[in-house]
Design a protein around this nucleic acid. Structure first.
Length: 411
RNA sequence: GUGGCCGUAGCUCAGUCGGUUAGAGCGCCGGGUUGUGGUCCCGGAGGUCGCGGGUUCGAUUCCCGUCGGCCACCCCA
């Protein structure tokens, strides 16, 4: 009998390690809720064409990283490599944005790549999309939200790498200038860079193989039209007012074609893996039109949950149980189990060890299962009392059964 | 997709210059006589030495393939 294994590049996240993931999900939902975002739940697969057009034919993601398959009717479908295209498609389909819409999402994404630490074929992103708002404060708000999320997740020393790539009209002139520059140095460029020069010359700027060749290259931030320039100035001023530290990174361009103006990434300084960005985002004012909708300004971000958990480091897991019920002997098991049920109905996070186990073994289980306290059901039950012990301090006392929730609240 | 390193208990790893009973630490289970964890002591369970093939009297050890992991490039969250 061959043992099964999970597919290459996938991770199983089991208890108790999944506690950290639950915490990340709850934290994100809570935080984005505070900023007024509500969940958008869209399919995990879409017509292949949506990503080809939305994300961009010339991007690596579309070119070679998609999980594409045909369904039984012969339709070409693709497991989503990112969520923005789906959310925008869904909103257009529902009639577009009237006023603004603030959507959040959480879930698995899929890219066919050679796996590495922090780079899985199925990975998890949490993100928000601020739709229908062109004001620079929207960019500021979204950047701040991602930054706060990383703080709440205890990722140390996060830096915001910030740039602007201007508007499409700004880029036409710039593109010609950049291409000319690259043409002069074509001998110094890597093979990758040469082919990329044709399709998407801006992407050569952040190629690690070409840092030297590209050192003096013209950069989009120096080729902004007046509106894009003013927008970027406002974004910077807004970040300053909110005390969000950032660093201008003129060569940051990002690999998804739909971005314009503001783009950024979050880079934790102490997380020195190659896959260093734990989140990123940008403005994408042309995407709605590109996908057949009305012109709608928008800005959004995506946070890489796998990488955030890696970057936060392996600290100890939180305790998840308020109370562990211990039966003083086999005679007390039924009573204890019934009481456990009542405790749970009352909202106490409680558990007990089942089966015939010694008191000692039950205490041990309480500790290992992450309980903060133990309650012993035994002879004192007849007097309407239980013995409770705080496992963190080691103190113990006898209390009335109905006082248990109050006691838990105090400990 | 390219190049490199690696794959022995649940985890981290040692080991066999090819030889018959494969080890440690941690973890897990039990015990140290009465109903008390996290420390200590004792005992126990647990291994197709990733998988397939080849060489050999004999392979976990050598060779090839394959699958998986890691690292760099690449890509991006």
């Amino acid at each position: 009998m061959t043992r099964f294994r999970g597919p290459k590049g996938t991770d199983d996240i089991l208890p108790p390690a999944s506690r950290v993931w639950s915490r990340a999900e709850l934290t994100f939902i809570e935080l984005s809720g505070t900023y007024g975002y509500e969940p958008a739940i869209t399919p995990i697969f879409e017509p292949t064409e949506l990503f080809a057009r939305g994300v961009g034919e010339a991007t690596e993601v579309v070119d070679k990283q998609m999980y594409t398959f045909a369904d039984k009717a012969g339709r070409s479908l693709t497991l989503r490599p990112e969520a923005t295209a789906s959310v925008v498609r869904a909103v257009i389909e529902a009639g577009g944005v009237h006023g603004v819409m603030k959507a959040s999402y959480w879930g698995p994404m899929f890219r066919y790549e050679r796996p590495q630490a922090g780079r899985k074929r199925q990975f998890y992103q949490a993100g928000v999309e601020y739709l229908g708002e062109g004001a620079p404060e929207a960019d500021v708000e979204v950047i701040e939200l991602g930054y706060r999320f990383l703080q709440d997740m205890d990722v140390p020393e996060v830096e915001v790498a910030l740039n602007t790539i201007g508007d499409p009209a700004d880029r036409e002139a710039y593109r010609a200038e950049l291409t000319a520059f690259l043409q002069e140095r074509i001998d110094l460029l890597s093979e990758d860079a040469r082919t990329r020069m044709e399709l998407n010359p801006m992407r050569v700027l952040d190629s690690k193989a070409d840092v030297e060749a590209v050192a003096g290259a013209p950069v989009p931030i120096d080729h902004l039209g007046p509106e894009a320039f003013a927008h970027f100035e406002a974004v910077k001023a807004g970040l300053d007012r909110l005390d969000i530290p950032y660093r201008i990174e003129p060569r940051l361009v990002r690999g998804l074609d739909y971005y314009n103006r503001t783009v950024w990434e979050y880079v934790p300084r102490r997380y020195d893996a190659a896959q260093s960005a734990v989140g990123g985002g940008g403005r994408y004012d042309q995407l709605f039109e590109l996908l057949g909708g009305r012109p709608t300004p928008a800005v959004g971000l995506a946070m890489g949950i796998d990488r955030i958990i890696l970057a936060a480091g392996g600290d100890e897991l939180p305790r998840i149980l308020d109370l562990f019920v211990v039966a003083a002997g086999p005679a007390w098991r039924d009573e204890a189990f019934a009481w456990l049920s009542r405790l749970r109905h009352a909202g106490v996070r409680a558990d007990m060890a089942l089966g015939d186990r010694s008191v000692k073994a039950q205490f041990k289980a309480a500790d290992r299962r992450g309980a903060r306290a133990v309650a012993v059901v035994g002879d004192e039950w007849a007097a309407g009392t239980v013995t409770v012990k705080d496992l963190e301090t080691g103190t113990q006392q006898v209390i009335a059964i109905e006082e248990i929730t109050a006691w838990i609240a105090e400990h």
